[in-house]
Computed example of a mutant assay.
Amino acid sequence: MTEPDPKSRLAALEARIAAARGRDEPRKRHQDEHYSQAQMAWRLVIELVAGLGIGFGIGYGLDILVGTTPFLMVIFTLLGFVAGVKTMIRSANEIQQKGLLDASGDGADEEEDGENGDRDARR
């Protein structure tokens, strides 16, 4: 009596293992998952703090060079705050637009095609 082909036995075993593990469904990559609310909030906070830090650094550096200790530091810190708030608002609008697209069921591919089409039309 002959035994079945080892390759076919191995293929059958792999199919059974895959079915048992549920690998028939493709796994989502971490990059494909949607961002959580906490990640978006941290992004906004970091943008604000970065604007403040950069403005403070530039102002402090110019104060040391020029010799006007608190004057430029205060001005550039305020400018950094304004820049951070503007960046936060821009990011919040971007997040909101992506949320509206996800909620309406439109795919990101359609949005990208529309943007590329607009760019091509402008050229």
Rank of each mutant, 00 (worst) to 15 (best):
M1W: 14
E3T: 09
P4E: 09
D5S: 11
D5R: 03
P6H: 03
K7F: 10
K7H: 11
S8A: 13
R9D: 12
A11S: 09
L13K: 08
R16A: 14
A20M: 09
R21H: 07
R21M: 13
R21D: 09
R21Q: 11
R21A: 14
R21Y: 07
G22T: 05
G22R: 06
G22K: 06
R23T: 11
D24N: 13
D24M: 06
D24E: 12
D24P: 00
E25C: 05
P26T: 12
R27L: 11
R29A: 15
R29T: 13
H30G: 10
Q31G: 12
Q31D: 14
D32P: 02
E33W: 07
Y35T: 15
S36D: 12
A38W: 11
Q39L: 07
Q39G: 14
A41K: 05
W42S: 13
R43S: 11
L44R: 04
V45H: 05
I46N: 09
L48C: 04
V49E: 05
A50P: 00
G51V: 00
G51L: 01
L52C: 02
G53C: 12
I54N: 01
I54M: 10
I54A: 11
G57S: 12
G57H: 01
I58G: 01
I58R: 01
I58N: 01
I58H: 01
Y60G: 00
G61E: 03
G61M: 03
L62P: 00
D63N: 11
I64P: 00
V66A: 13
T68E: 10
T69S: 08
P70N: 02
P70A: 04
F71S: 04
F71E: 10
F71P: 01
M73H: 03
V74G: 07
I75R: 02
I75F: 07
F76L: 08
F76Y: 08
T77A: 08
L78E: 02
L79M: 12
V82A: 12
V82L: 13
G84N: 01
K86A: 15
T87L: 06
M88F: 05
I89R: 11
R90M: 11
S91P: 01
A92V: 01
N93L: 12
N93H: 15
E94G: 15
I95Y: 12
Q97K: 15
G99D: 13
L101D: 09
D102Q: 14
A103D: 12
G105V: 03
G105K: 02
G105H: 03
A108C: 03
D109M: 07
E111M: 07
E112H: 08
N116L: 09
N116P: 00
G117T: 03
G117K: 03
G117M: 04
D118M: 08
D118T: 08
D118A: 09
D120G: 04
R122N: 06
